[in-house]
Amino acid sequence: MRHLIDILDLTTAEIDELIETANDIIQNPAAYAHKCEGKKLAALFFEPSTRTRLSFEAAMYELGGHVIGFSDAGNSSSAKGESVADTIKMIGCYADIAAMRHFKEGAPLVAAMRSDIPVINAGDGGHNHPTQTLTDLLTIKREKGHFDGLTVGFCGDLKFGRTVHSLITALSRYENIKFVLISPQELKVPSYVKDLLKDKGLTYKQTTDLDSVMPELDILYMTRVQRERFFNEEEYLRLKDSYILTPEKLKTAKEDLRILHPLPRVNEIAVAVDDDPRACYFRQALNGKFIRMALILKLLEEAGK
């Protein structure tokens, strides 16, 4: 059974195929409106989510399918102590494919190891979020036309930001990408991400100063400092306003820079930036639905459903 737990579960050729399918869906939505008729997606959200959950639901509905599930662990049998493995075995009786978000890292992998239906990791703690990465890759491809040779800046919480880890991992497979990692000392990328870049001999720069690197960037990937990842409220309050992107700060940026953000934002991007043509985070959110449609189609097809 094929699942998507980590972005590296997909080859770059498969990612290209998904991007191609997503682009085709954008061009010809009617051609896909009945592809999943009679199929059910189980949206298993053990942790609150708006964008990802609604995006999965919208994706399945636009393919003509149905959605079952829950949006809070309190409404699931895990509140009664049921294991992830038992939950997915039970869900497999009712649904054709599952998207799981869990507050514990590795939970979707545990589900996939026991599941009779394809499992998509919709975010596990601070670990992975591969469908956000697919969304980011589709957005970069649509906005810039290519991946190779780009200078990509990641800014904010690079320690707990799972979208950052997954996207760096995915981009590390393309040619000549330069990584610029901008974060406070306390929120630097984990060692395994740096090890990955070092092992592949890729160029990366770490800095705490966004202004000094702004002119180099082709992509600026902003992230939120996530309150829910901190055990210590005091530390969260100290770090939450480390970087706030304003029109003023963008004055030195390239004309064709593209600003991405996995959303939701709190205050790390000033609302005034939304009108800048370089801001593409809302287009990015829309792309999320299309790439998830492409992924659901691929995994159902491979499962023979």
Partner: peptide
């Protein structure tokens, strides 16, 4: 502390050789 093994006691602790 964020790992799934912290709440699912039945899961075997498995480590893989990364390097």
């Amino acid at each position: 502390p964020r790992c799934i093994t912290t709440i699912e006691q039945e899961l075997p602790h498995i480590f893989k050789l990364a390097n």
